[in-house]
Design a protein around this nucleic acid. Sequence first.
DNA 1: ACCCAGGGTCATA
DNA 2: TATGACCATGGG
Length: 206
Amino acid sequence: MLKHYGPQHWWPAETQFEVTIGAILAQNVSWINAAKAIQNLKEHGLLHPQKLFNLEPAAIAPLIKSSGYYNQKAAAIAVFLHWFKKYNFDFETLQKIPTEVLRKELLAIPRIGPETADSILLYALERKIFVVDAYTKRMFTRLGVLTGNEDYAAIQDLFHKDFKGSVNDYNEYHALIVKHGKDICTKKPQCGDCCIKTYCPWDGDV
DNA sequence: ACCCAGGGTCATA
DNA sequence: TATGACCATGGG
């Protein structure tokens, strides 16, 4: 996939905070919708922890309307910031905390689930964590690696056990799966076992 | 009109 | 534990 698509250079953001907020806003919506919400926060000069912390969820919600689920996401952002305040809104301080501890604390925040937590850990904090998403499950089920019944933890364990790579490799791997995910059929395979229109990670160009 | 998108949570059986 | 319902916008 790397050879076919080239490096993706994720996460498209200027700051660690932008990555983190983006991870929440991107939940189950197209990236374009999440990006619009990010851009809107930027244009209001609000994409800073202290600034957003001073807003009520009800004030955040209309600003992130384009990302959908805006009430839930505004609440999630507010609770995240309440947690982040403990660490002086400082990512350098977060870096001193072991990955497993951080993950647990992130998961304790309402509406930050495993994929969002892991996205923050990998893309904002550069921890060697594999991010599992719907594309991962679909693609590796099509490829016959998964049955399709595995849960998040089981899939992640598989990659953690078998994938030997650097943090940057983990970064690219997930990004490439998402990139490729946009090329594969969402429903029924039409062009072979892995249902890839133009390219198969196993067989190369089709 | 329907389906999907860089999920998560809760009620029900 | 495993489905189903719900959250909600915007583009194909």
